[in-house]
Amino acid sequence: MPFDPSLAWDSLPRMLFGLANTVGITALTLVLGLAMAIPVTLARMSPRRIFRLPAAWFVMFFRGTPALILMYLVYYGLAQLPSIHDGPLWPIFANAFACAVIGLALNHASYLVEILRGGLEAVPAGLVEASAALGISPRQTYQWVRLPLAMRYALKAYQNEVIGFTKGTAVVGVITVVDLTATANEVFERTYDPVTPMLTAAVLYWCLINLMRIGFEFADRRLNRHLAAEEQRRRKPVAASLQPALARWTGLAAPNTERAL
């Protein structure tokens, strides 16, 4: 394979700078996406159509649209609208980095709404009733019973979504943000060696993704301790094999069917 180790080494500082941008975009998207998702989730679960319907449209539009088109739409499309171009927020929408975060966050939030809703709805009604029967107020029940349990139920789905959109940040290069993929492209255009920069970037992405997986699995083990105890009780003594350890190291959990990638 025509992989050039010295080029990989020379381009590493630039690549790491690109990786830092990727990480920054990911972190900001996480925060902004969550901030957007919470009100939309509440609206989506509202008993009133006037809240529920727009929230459902929000989810349908931003979930169904490829992130690439959202990049174009936020960066080029919105600039065309006078209300944006002449409005007070123009400094934000004129900035490619900010637009990348906004576009990705809209996409992320739309997935997050469905994940949060799934988690909240999965909390057994019996637990909420038990809490009410103990004289705990609805608000406190939400805060101390329903929400903590929903977070535990939704964690696996959240992990898959976060890892999915982290890989999806690779599109931000199209609106001039220099992330890891864009850096690899720059190196390719300068050296005409496509394989080395792409593989170098792939290795860095792999490390980032698996660091995130390890972090999530750590959180999962902490939050879902009660399930681990159950699992252990159910496990047969002979079933222990090499697989769980391998799975942990390669970061491959069983696929969660709900959302993915």
């Binding site: 792999w206 970061g251 990638l261």
Partner: peptide, 18 residues
């Protein structure tokens, strides 16, 4: 395990470019 981990740990855009 190794192969799946590699493919699932890399953006599809990068795979397309590659």
């Amino acid at each position: 395990r190794v192969y799946a981990s590699i493919v699932m740990g890399v953006p599809s855009l990068l795979v397309i470019f590659l």
